[in-house]
Amino acid sequence: MRRAWRWSIAALPLLLLVACAPRQLVRLPGNAAMLAQQQAREKQLAAVTHWTLRGRLGVSDGHHGGSGSLTWTQDGDRYAFELQGPALSGVDFRLVGGPDGATLNGVRGGPLHGPDAETLMQAALGWTVPLRDLRAWVLGLRADSGPASLRFGDNHLPSLLQQDGWTVDYRAWDSQRQPPLPTTIFASKPPYKVRLAVESWSIR
């Protein structure tokens, strides 16, 4: 199944993003004021359980990859992750679930069912992706899975987050929104790379 993955013209927007996005070189360890500001953001956003993110997603496992248009809806403990394009399975991809399990459509032999999203991704695509942690990281928060290391940019917002073996690089933020939310996120854990360009946030 993974042999079916192919880079295609759909990957060009993400390749251009990688090439053109200005790299944020500021990696401040964070003083008391920055850490207090981050803790306040985390406390405020921890109460936000209903949101929709739309953007472009690019993925690679070091050998194959692709990109597509992403819509991620979080409704409390339930989620819907929809990807249009060849980024993962070669066709449109939909992952939905919650506490009672997860269902994956858009893969050969699907729909597939499993106890959680991580198990399904591993079984269907061979990917080890911490989707539960990603729910926090995409908001610019530390996940509750274990220790995390933070570095800050000159905007006093997270620039680099390291947790669970992953490095999450925040390249751009929507600082007009309060609290601010990330708009360009690069995450990596060799051999995996994920690139997300957020086009819109809807917080309810």
Score class of each variant (00 low, 15 high):
residue 111 P to Y: 12
residue 133 D to S: 15
residue 85 G to R: 03
residue 133 D to R: 00
residue 51 W to E: 04
residue 61 D to P: 08
residue 146 G to I: 05
residue 44 Q to L: 14
residue 111 P to V: 05
residue 77 D to H: 11
residue 120 L to D: 12
residue 107 V to W: 14
residue 78 R to H: 13
residue 62 G to H: 10
residue 118 E to T: 02
residue 106 G to D: 03
residue 57 L to K: 06
residue 137 W to M: 03
residue 99 P to W: 05
residue 137 W to Q: 03
residue 149 S to F: 03
residue 86 P to V: 02
residue 127 W to Q: 04
residue 99 P to Y: 05
residue 122 Q to K: 14
residue 114 G to W: 10
residue 102 A to R: 01
residue 121 M to Y: 04
residue 64 H to R: 15
residue 129 V to Y: 05
residue 109 G to R: 12
residue 75 D to Q: 15
residue 119 T to A: 15
residue 48 V to P: 02
residue 99 P to M: 06
residue 110 G to Y: 02
residue 48 V to A: 13
residue 69 S to V: 08
residue 59 V to P: 01
residue 48 V to T: 15
residue 98 G to H: 02
residue 150 L to V: 08
residue 95 L to A: 05
residue 147 P to H: 03
residue 89 S to T: 14
residue 115 P to E: 14
residue 128 T to M: 02
residue 48 V to I: 12
residue 83 L to A: 05
residue 150 L to Y: 04
residue 57 L to F: 12
residue 98 G to W: 01
residue 54 R to T: 14
residue 39 Q to I: 00
residue 70 L to F: 07
residue 69 S to N: 11
residue 80 A to R: 14
residue 66 G to W: 09
residue 148 A to D: 01
residue 84 Q to I: 11
residue 91 V to R: 14
residue 53 L to M: 15
residue 103 T to A: 13
residue 67 S to K: 02
residue 84 Q to G: 04
residue 44 Q to V: 11
residue 77 D to P: 13
residue 144 D to C: 00
residue 126 G to E: 12
residue 150 L to Q: 08
residue 106 G to Q: 06
residue 105 N to I: 03
residue 68 G to C: 11
